[in-house]
Design a protein around this nucleic acid. Structure first.
Length: 584
RNA sequence: GUGCUCGUAGCCCAGUGGAUAAGGCGUCAGCCUCCGAAGCUGAAGAUCGCUGGUUCGAUUCCAGUCGGGCACACCA
């Protein structure tokens, strides 16, 4: 509908110029928006204000000219406006045509306000029924390959609540982009190399030694969580070799380094499997699990370093290799190979991001915890240095979750073992409620997640407010069918004249624009805010009007309306990874 | 100290150049002989941290300032 309005304005401006009413055919960057207040119309444009300087005229004067040109020349119809064409009105004067504009007026400093006739909104209901679960889909992505990498937690412990927020955000962003015409791949980067894995191996090994009665101090820099003990116990009980022998005893015969290595590998695999299971329970699936170690095994880290040397962005100083990140906007240069010959984590990250683009992605999105923000410039530098554009890379910084229990902060540390796992949260409050809480507000803000509140107030959680709409409508449709009413797309939608009905349809019609905004901004919470407003509009309608009435045609029209609400609620919730239940 | 980020009603938070700043929680007053009250209607509650600047217009952009969070390794 916005594009229709825009076309109307541009055509009016063109006509005004041709008639000599406007001195310039300059077309400014205008905004077309739905005003906050209903008495400012359905859409409003600042066209007159933003073109005032170019036209050297007062905004209100320009607005009057535009207004007269619109009213003088055009009659608009809606017959063909259910396609994405911009020219979806005809320039005819036939009296039979439906006027979509009820009123246009000039207000305030020069706003042109458009009031859309109710009849112009009805086709959206038909459109929703025709398109079903594809309503809201667009092609702004034009099939471009985009990778969304998220969670990517080290396999050194179970996922906690912070990972949950990242998982919910990454998954939803992927869904929204896919719905908007991008070719999306979701990926998890496994940090299965480096010191943390060695620490993991040592932690398990020490626990294992304790199990068999050795007096060993459990080092403070090891992982303290109980899950380490569980894994150690598991390993000790494994039966290996011929003749059969317990793994615990077997490892004791080996050099410590080898034993630690075996523990590390077993524990990492075990924990990673747990992570996969927890994410699956959370409704999050990945297209690919990418191993950091594989970058070393395949030589890609060395290749990347070699490539950068050839590009002359790496130099040697103090026995280490430095990448000139400062010349790409970072505050100082960074080490990629230490003077002891070991590569840094940054080196594999350079190789990894190079690898991403080499795989053919036009665009790469990383979802990180906000505590990694200092890393952005570095990766940007790596991407630019390898010949890609900065614009092809986005980082979504997800602010931290403050976990509380009845208002008191809960210590969260993988190392100390003091944390509440994602699994525990999902088990307690449910997948839908957890995802809702994570997506209900912008990831730019920190989030307080109070376990007691989430548990106790389950029924008050606004996700149920939205899901309830879906279930309520399902109930209505069920009752209608029990009464033998067959749902068809009504030909008498103009029976929907109540203000609450028109308001509902307007909100439904805006869904595609909302999805598009969400995709452009990479902000899933926009969808949620929308769903809440749609739910509120529906609940208000429901409490004022009966859907199933004695008047059969009216009943059909209303069934048509509410079932389209149901479809849009479902589409929106699906994008957020939240289920749309028929019953609750 | 430097950098990033966030300061919007008692609490949580949306809006990010436009006309009367949107919700929720909590408080108060109402609504079920009627398609699910996990709902609805109404009331009270905000000089959008502060000070300047840019603009026809600033909660929104810029500078400064105060306050919260985070990051500042040849760690990952």
């Amino acid at each position: 509908m916005k594009t229709v309005i825009k076309t109307i304005i541009l055509n009016a401006a063109e006509l005004a110029f041709k008639k000599g009413l406007l001195p310039s055919d300059f077309t400014p960057e205008m905004e077309i928006e739905a005003p906050r207040h209903a008495n400012h119309g359905d859409f409003s444009t600042n066209f007159a204000m933003v073109s005032a300087s170019a036209q050297k005229m007062a905004p209100r004067k320009i607005a009057e000219i535009i207004l007269s040109c619109i009213e003088e020349s055009f009659t608009f119809d809606t017959e063909n406006h259910n396609r994405d064409k911009t020219a979806n009105y005809t320039r005819v004067k036939s009296e039979n045509r439906i006027r979509i504009l009820e009123k246009i007026e000039i207000a305030g400093p020069g706003f042109i306000n458009f009031f859309i006739a109710p009849i112009a909104w009805y086709p959206f209901i038909q459109k929703i029924h025709q398109q079903g679960e594809t309503f809201g889909r667009s092609n702004i992505g034009q099939g471009k390959k985009v990778q969304v990498e998220f969670v990517s937690a080290n396999p050194t412990g179970p996922l906690h609540i912070g990972h949950g927020r990242g998982a919910a955000v990454g998954d939803a962003v992927g869904n929204i982009l896919a719905f908007s015409g991008f070719d999306v791949q979701k990926e998890y980067y496994i940090n299965d190399s480096g010191r943390q894995i060695r620490t993991l191996g040592r932690s398990v090994w020490l626990r294992l030694c304790q199990l068999i009665g050795r007096q060993i101090d459990f080092s403070e820099d090891c992982y303290q969580g109980d899950y380490i003990r569980d894994i150690a116990l598991e390993i000790s009980q494994l039966i290996v070799n011929e003749p059969p022998v317990k793994m615990g005893d077997y490892l004791l015969t080996k050099p410590e380094a080898e034993a630690v290595d075996t523990c590390a590998k077993y524990a990492a695999d075990k924990i990673l499997q747990g992570i996969k299971d927890d994410l699956a329970d959370f409704g999050v699936g990945f297209d690919r699990w990418f191993s950091e170690q594989s970058l070393y095994d395949s030589g890609k880290v060395q290749d990347a370093i070699k490539d950068f040397k050839e590009r002359d962005v790496i130099y040697e100083k103090d026995g280490a290799l430095w990448f000139k990140t400062e010349s790409f906007g970072d505050e100082k240069d960074r080490v990629v190979v230490r003077n002891n010959g070991l590569t840094t984590y940054f080196a594999s990250d350079i190789a990894y991001h190079k690898e991403k683009f080499d795989r053919g992605f036009d665009r790469v999105i990383d979802v990180w915890g906000a505590d990694h923000h200092g890393y952005i410039n570095r990766i940007n530098a790596a991407i630019e240095a390898s010949g890609r554009k900065k614009e092809q890379f986005d980082v979504i910084l997800v602010q931290l979750v403050n976990l509380l229990r009845a208002g008191q902060p809960v210590a969260m540390s993988t190392r100390s073992g003091e944390f509440v796992t994602l699994k525990e949260i999902v088990d307690e409050v449910g997948k839908d409620a957890a995802r809702f809480i994570f997506l209900s507000r912008s990831y730019d803000s920190g989030l307080d997640f109070d376990l007691e509140v989430a548990k106790q107030q389950t029924a008050d959680n606004p996700v149920y407010y939205v899901q309830y709409v879906h279930a309520r409508i399902a109930g209505i449709l069920l009752k209608a069918s029990e009464q033998g009413i067959v749902m068809v797309v009504s030909h008498n939608l103009e029976l929907l004249v109540e203000p609450e009905e028109i308001k509902l349809i307007k909100i439904l019609a805006a869904f595609p624009e909302v999805v598009e905004k969400s995709a452009r901004d990479l902000h899933p919470h926009v969808i949620f805010t929308y769903l809440v407003s749609l739910a509120a509009a529906f609940h208000g309608y429901y409490n004022h009007h009966k859907v199933i009435t004695e008047h059969q045609e009216l009943t059909l029209a209303r069934l048509c309306l509410v079932s389209s609400v149901k479809k849009v609620i479902s589409n929106g919730l699906t994008l957020l990874g939240v289920s749309a239940p028929e019953r609750m």
